[in-house]
Design a protein around this nucleic acid. Structure first.
Lengths: 219, 219
DNA sequence: TACCATATCTACAGTTCTGTCAATAGACCA
DNA sequence: TGGTCTATTGACAGAACTGTAGATATGGTA
């Protein structure tokens, strides 16, 4: 036997059929599966072997593409943040300030956070590792967009434009409330049959509260 | 040798000095250590052996008191929630409505969430397991207290008392904002030297916003 | 003092998870 | 067709963690 390893070219064991994807395609599929696991099972559900099973590959393939488990979680966190911010930027810039009301946008933020479990992902990120650096620039772009809208609207209607800090605080409050409420919202409405109704009412109530401020300080 | 086990009463290996505590005392110390680990290291830092080392005991002792790792995390989550709510109830009921302003209370909520890392613990709880049942009744008591204050204040000043739903929404928004902001606040202020100043300013800004509403709907 | 309940310990079993290594096979190109 | 690049795999190594079992010591009590 010239083989330095024991035996193990056993032809009885049929190898899994190999599907060769591009590196990018493989990365995306792995991230998708990891994200699904995180949503359903919480922070401790990111297991290389399980994720690999979901995708239908072996776990060393994940390590090949992401270096380590840490590399995977880092890439996942970045993708989540980027997608969320892109979604927001899209909502903020798609229509003219007068067309899309602030209420719609707030509703949009809450929906995105809640429906897709994004809040869970963000919270996990905040818990697990220092996520400040990359996210900062992204959030800044959201603030800038919001501020630009408000300034333009103020100019159009001839009222005093708001300060940039006020815009930053509006964005910060909206995101914090959406994040916090998505995490703890179930607690407030648990047991009552009209959960969704109450949740929706709360969001409208909050949007109304915020718009009163915007009306005063410039929408 | 009457010993059924092999050998192993090796007198060379000095056993750790045993400290016998009451069950309650032991439980509290273990929970303290677990909480500290969770604060600093995130969700995955709850390791029985490390916690045991912190307390200065062996890890089977933890299992003796909490049955399993899951039992420990459950007890920890319950303790965190109870302490937070007790703190809030205390703040709400300690003074007369007119003496303690809403601004003070909001500041209190944010401080508690942020300073002690309570937000991290709450978020971890929300992520890790279903926490709704026990917490619901606790939060309800907070809402009741807040509502009672507002009704009393309305009667004193002769204005229309607010609806109970409005009080529930105020409490829900304040807690959600505090939770969300504590989790993501670092992102907004990262890099700037006057972090604390900005954070404090944001809290006051929010308190002011909320008080405008309370003034309208009854403090 | 003798006894009991139980908090605590040491040692180990069993599982699971990440990461490494060398071999293999699919895709693209000359 | 033959060759190269690299995505993929099986097998294993090594570590860590939870949980179990039986022995032991400690504080209170009769």
């Amino acid at each position: 036997m010239p083989s330095p390893r024991k035996k193990k070219t056993t032809p009885t064991k049929t190898s899994l059929p190999r599907v060769r994807r591009t590196a990018e395609e493989a990365r995306q599929r792995i991230l998708d599966a990891a994200e699904a696991r995180l949503r359903n099972g919480g922070p401790e559900a990111i297991r290389l072997q399980e994720i690999a099973a979901d995708v239908g590959i072996s776990h060393p393939t994940i390590l090949h593409h992401f270096e380590s488990r840490d590399g995977l979680t880092r890439a996942l966190g970045l993708r989540i943040t980027e997608r969320l911010v892109a979604d927001l930027v899209d909502a903020l810039s798609s229509k003219q300030p007068t067309e899309t009301s602030a209420e719609e946008i707030i509703e949009h933020v809450f929906t995105t956070m809640g429906d897709s479990g994004t809040a869970r992902l963000i919270a996990w990120r905040a818990l697990s590792f220092d996520s400040a650096e990359e996210a900062r620039a992204l959030l800044d772009s959201v603030t800038s967009l919001l501020h630009a809208r408000r300034v333009q609207h103020a100019n159009d209607t001839g009222v005093e434009p708001p300060s940039r800090q006020d815009s930053a605080f509006v964005a910060r409050l909206a995101s914090a409330a959406a994040l916090g409420d998505s995490l703890s919202g179930d607690i407030w409405t648990a047991g009552s049959p009209e959960n969704d109704q109450t949740n929706a009412r709360f969001r409208r109530w909050f949007a109304h509260l915020l718009m009163e401020h915007l009306d005063k300080a410039g929408c």
